[in-house]
């Protein structure tokens, strides 16, 4: 799910930027520092929407850098447990399949795929999962699937999730 959150970030500015255009520099620096980064608590920061406040800078003793606390509003992507999401299948394997949703890579174990899907390991160009009753429903690389998230974890600069696809209305979708 997407959220608009007020976040805080401390930025160090080297003395060469201390001048008339300091606000612009700080804004640019903030955008490049946080957009596309992962926050363990809040999730993936998609975009900075508004710069709310630039706090009072503090000169650092040893280097002469100035540390500014910045308040900003940002669009944040944080999937949560139990959420149903649409994702794109990236790899199909014997033990399940992986899918991507923006910055997040997700895995669905074979046991968590509804029982009426079976694996076609020799299918070309990629193996795929096919529905027994409706063969037009396939899980294949590049296809879209609807999944329910069971767990999410943010490690450093990647976001991973474990999902399931065994309930009604989950599965391949045509957009």
């Amino acid at each position: 799910m997407f959220f608009i959150l007020s976040l805080k970030k401390n930025l160090k500015l080297t003395p060469e930027y201390l001048g008339k255009r300091i606000n612009k520099h700080l804004a640019n620096l903030l955008n490049s520092a946080v957009e596309g980064s992962f926050d363990t608590k809040f999730g993936y920061i998609v975009k900075v929407l508004k710069h709310e406040k630039i706090g009072e800078g503090k000169v650092q003793d040893s280097s002469g850098d100035v540390l500014f606390p910045l308040l900003y509003k940002a669009l944040v992507f944080m999937p949560y447990k139990g959420e149903v999401v649409d994702a794109m299948v990236s790899q199909v394997m014997e033990v399940g399949f992986t899918a991507t949703l923006g910055p997040m890579s997700m895995f669905v174990a074979a046991q968590n795929i509804a029982a009426d899907y079976y694996l076609e390991p020799e299918a070309r160009p990629h193996p795929r999962w096919v529905n027994k009753t409706d063969p037009s429903k396939t899980i294949q690389v590049g296809g879209d699937v609807r999944l329910r998230i069971m767990s999410v974890r943010v490690n450093g600069n990647e976001m991973m999730g474990v999902c399931e696809m065994s309930e009604a209305y989950l599965g391949p979708i045509t957009v």
């Binding site: 174990a109 968590n112 069971m150 974890r153 990647e158």
Partner: peptide, 11 residues
């Protein structure tokens, strides 16, 4: 999967 149980989602 990435530090989570792929079956139950346990972290």
């Amino acid at each position: 999967f990435g530090g989570m149980c792929a079956f139950c989602g346990y972290r």
